[in-house]
Each structure stands twice: as structure tokens, then as C-alpha cells.
Amino acid sequence: MLEVGVQTKGIIEGRVTEPGFAMIAEAGFDCVDFNLDVFLQNNEIYMGELNHFFDKDEAQLESFFIPYKQAMEKYGLRASQMHAPYPVMVYGRTQQNRYMQEQVIPKSLMIAHMMDIPHVVIHPWKLQYRLDAETEQRENLSYFRSLIPLAEQYHVMICMENLYESVGGRIVEGVCADPEEAVREIEILNEYAGKELFGFCLDTGHMNLTRRNAYEMISTLGAHLKILHLHDNDAQGDLHQMPYTFRRKDFGEGVNWNDVLDGLGKVHYRGVLSFETYPCVNSFPENLSLEVLRVICQTGRYFAQVLEKEDAGWETL
């Protein structure tokens, strides 16, 4: 049976909260996407006001995260993927970028290893609107290549994610939004490494925002697709909401989940069906969090059922 996971953000925030893991387990999830990014948040990084969490040395970080690992074990959960703090690079912030690249990301990979997390999402650099797409690709290849020794040392697979950007408030495609380009970069990086150290994390919400056909995108990613950020939106904002809530029978701007499932079936996806849906936990009244998580988990179980039937030769939806 395919496993189903959910991100820890919005449920476990910045402190060990056993009730949070207990709630995730009670909702029926097998796995979590461990949001390391909550310890150094993207708004702090964009504003250049970094906290000092990652100034801790490796031993201090390890002892900080051991209780998290123990709490997950206690509730029968495993962290199947991690989201590293992002962005790794903000154009023009040389000193901050060096800190992100030399301290935060290596320590993130170390923490992933310590917590037995096999996949880590590291956002590729966004440069195409500042400079150009060719420079963006070149810089990303150079940066991700530099991570090969760390990926080997910590036995983690680094996953790039399809991103969007905002130009004058309008959402536009960003780095890795084009699956062909993403595949090309991953293949070059794996060739540098001489082994498979790089993969792809498909974010279904970002895919919808950049108006990509899910079936074609997933088919193009093929076996490079290792992990997922499953969530839905109205094709206007990155809402990270639960599937099926932005459509009606005959119209709608939400993700076409039949296409997603057909695509995952075609590439025989066997990774975790992981949801990145923390705003649901925020938007519903607080006392309904468990119920919200149950719906998300049941949706994942349904996806798993469809994919397993497809794999057994059942015709697509």
C-alpha cells in the first residue's frame, strides 16, 4: 500500500509537541514531511533578518531534534521527506547567501541523516527574472553539484522543486517549472555524481499556478519524480488547500486530480503521497484540525487505491 504523509508545518511548530504528532497519527497518516524551514522562515530570509537557530553546532542541533525523532517513533510515524529552509540565494545578499549555503543547508542535510529522512527538498535558485534563464540553469547546476559530497556523506537524495515567481503581483513560471529543463538538470547532476543523488519534488499547486497539464508534466518527469507536495488552489494564489475544493462538475480552476493520478500511474510512482496543506489547518476553526487532517488522509488513501488498481491493470479513471 502506498504511504500517505502530511507536512508538519502548522501542526508541529518550533517545539516538540507530542500532541501534534499524535494528531497526525490519529488522522491516519504513515509519514510526515518534516518542515525544517519553520526554524528559519522564508520571510526572515527574504527580509534579511535571519535568526540564529542554525548557529548551533552539529551536536547541539542533534540533541535538539532527537525528541522529534523519538516522538515520531512513539506514534509510528516516519519522516519521509524534509523541506530545507529557503531561499538559499537572494540576489545581491552575498553574506547571507554564504551563511545559507555554508551553514544552513549542510546542517539541514546532517539533520536529515540524523532523523533517517531519505529525501530533502532544496529550492533551486531563482534568477531568470533578475538575469536570464541560462544563467539560472548554470548557477543551479554549479550550486547543486557542490552538494554532491554532502549528499553522499549523509545518504540523502536532494530534490529540486517546480517553483513560480511573482512579477508585478502576477504569478509566472519560475525555475524548474518546465519539466524538460528540470529533467535535463537532474540528469546532468546525477551524471556528475556517478549515481542517483538528485530527484524531483512535484508541487501540484505550483504546477496548477503555472498552467501545466499534470499528466504531461508527470510523464516527462518519469522516474526522476521521487516525492510530492500535493495540494490544490484556484490557479490564482498559492493557497495550499485540500484537493477537490476548487472545481465543480463542468468547470473550475483547481488541479485536475484525474490527470495527476493518470500521470502517477503511468510513471508507476511508488513514493509517499505527501500533502503540503498546512493552510487548511489554519483556515478551519482550530478545534476541527483533526477532522481536516482525516479528510486529507482519506483523500491520500483514495489516491493510493486508484494507483494500486491502475498498477494491477485497472483502467485509468
Binding site: G10, D234, Q236, G237, D238, L239, H240, Q241, M242, T245, F246, R247, R248, F251, G252, E253, Y278, P279, C280, V281, N282, S283, F284, P285
Partner: peptide, 21 residues
Amino acid sequence: NDGRKDYHQMPYTFTAGRGAL
């Protein structure tokens, strides 16, 4: 709904940004 189309969807799912109703 999203203020544009009559989706007849679940209350609390239409938000701005990350969870603001």
C-alpha cells in the same frame, strides 16, 4: 467560492495567501 465563479464549495477552503479566509 473565489468571488468569481459559483463553485458551491466547502466553507473555509477559499483563502488568500496561506489560510486567511
